[in-house]
């Protein structure tokens, strides 16, 4: 059963200039993005800065109004609502069902509130009584591995990893149907990052969490996600089950991303290969496939026609004109 189904999502921002700040163009930050998340599934959205992954997540949270497209969300079994056209007022009762885990555990917690109150806040806002709230906060702290004594302390008394646990407890307070996590471990030290990744894995198992996991670290993504969508200059170029995407990528950009990751193995030295050139400017993307100026496999068709995202093998979609004929290299 689908918790979320995004279809044909577009988001563009005006570019303003001149004396009167008139609109002189548009940046198409997200173009024709479609994907869905099943109940209990974690879908990762990966890509380099400016690829539109954060814009997609902000549209889903309706922190940004989409330009067009549908964002069908199921707040409970048997109900589906399109979030895209809803007014603020109509969104309000739905907000509790989609919660967010932020990147920076330092700026996302109110420094003047006790940890117990931070975790209880979403409960209070949604009218949960104080007795029940108290019990729920205790259970949540246990769930994320924080001591009960944390309730009466302020966030500054905690390390980055513990603060991220506080943020996770708050996000889970209302039993959300969908959690959107934007780079939740990228600000943490390696040893602490591993603890939080394991916590997220435990929570997936115990609570059957459905999660949209926005990240740039392909190692982290491999551990936590069931499926991965790769974005490049506003579009999804490949989407597939995690193992399939890593072992047998079907888009040259995915291959390039995997090849560029510095492997923690000195025996694999000098094998890292970087694609030539730079990420295209989303305000002025190249015609055809946006990756073509950097792609070693580009042919004439790639320079003129935008490739469609289509199924190449079961469950594995690619937006490359040559997806079927190329044999690309992944990682074992």
């Amino acid at each position: 059963m689908k918790v979320l189904e995004v279809e044909g999502l577009h988001k563009s921002f005006p570019i303003r200039g001149g004396l009167l700040q008139r609109e002189i163009g548009r940046v198409r930050a997200v173009q024709d993005v479609s994907f869905s998340i099943e109940r209990g599934e974690t879908l990762a959205l990966v890509g380099e800065s400016g690829c539109g992954k954060t814009t997609v997540s902000r549209c889903i949270l309706r922190a940004l109004p989409p330009t067009s497209g549908a964002i069908r969300f199921s707040p409970q079994d048997g109900t589906v609502v399109d979030l895209a056209p809803l007014s603020r007022r109509a969104l309000r009762p739905l907000r509790r069902h989609i919660q967010m885990i932020f990147q920076d555990p330092y700026s996302s917690l109110n420094p003047r509130m006790l940890v117990g109150d931070i975790v209880a806040e979403p409960l209070a806002v949604n009218g949960v009584g104080s007795v029940e709230r108290e019990a729920r906060v205790r259970a949540l702290l246990d769930l994320v591995g924080l001591p009960q004594s944390a309730r009466t302390r302020f966030p500054h008394a905690f390390s980055g990893g513990q603060r991220q646990r506080i943020g996770i407890a708050r996000a889970l307070a209302l039993d959300p149907r969908l959690v959107v996590a934007d780079e939740p471990v990228s600000a943490l030290d390696v040893s602490v990052q591993a603890q939080i990744i394991n916590l997220l894995l435990d929570l997936q198992d115990r609570l059957g969490l459905s999660m949209l996991f926005v990240a740039h670290d392909l190692g982290v993504v491999r551990h936590v996600s069931d499926r991965v969508a790769v974005m490049y200059v506003g579009r999804i170029v490949e989407i597939a089950p995690t193992r399939s995407l890593y072992s047998r990528p079907r888009h040259p950009y995915t291959e390039a991303l995997l090849a560029a990751v510095p492997k923690p193995d000195p025996e694999l030295r000098d094998q890292a290969a970087a694609p030539r050139g730079e990420v295209a400017d989303p305000a002025n993307p190249p015609p055809g496939c946006a990756f073509h100026p950097r792609c070693p496999f580009a042919v004439d068709l790639c320079r003129t026609e935008v490739p469609k995202l289509r199924e190449t093998t079961t469950g594995h979609m690619s937006a490359c004109h040559r997806a079927e004929e190329l044999t690309l290299t992944g990682v074992a």
């Binding site: 390696v190 040893s191 990052q193 591993a194 551990h223 996600s225």
Partner: peptide, 25 residues
């Protein structure tokens, strides 16, 4: 040893747990 084991790997099996170092720096 602990630091090397806690690095997420692009070769991991999906849902693989990582070895962790207890506590924080």
């Amino acid at each position: 040893r602990a630091l090397l084991r806690s690095v997420p790997s692009i070769r991991a099996e999906p849902r693989d747990r990582l070895a962790t170092i207890g506590g924080t720096v």
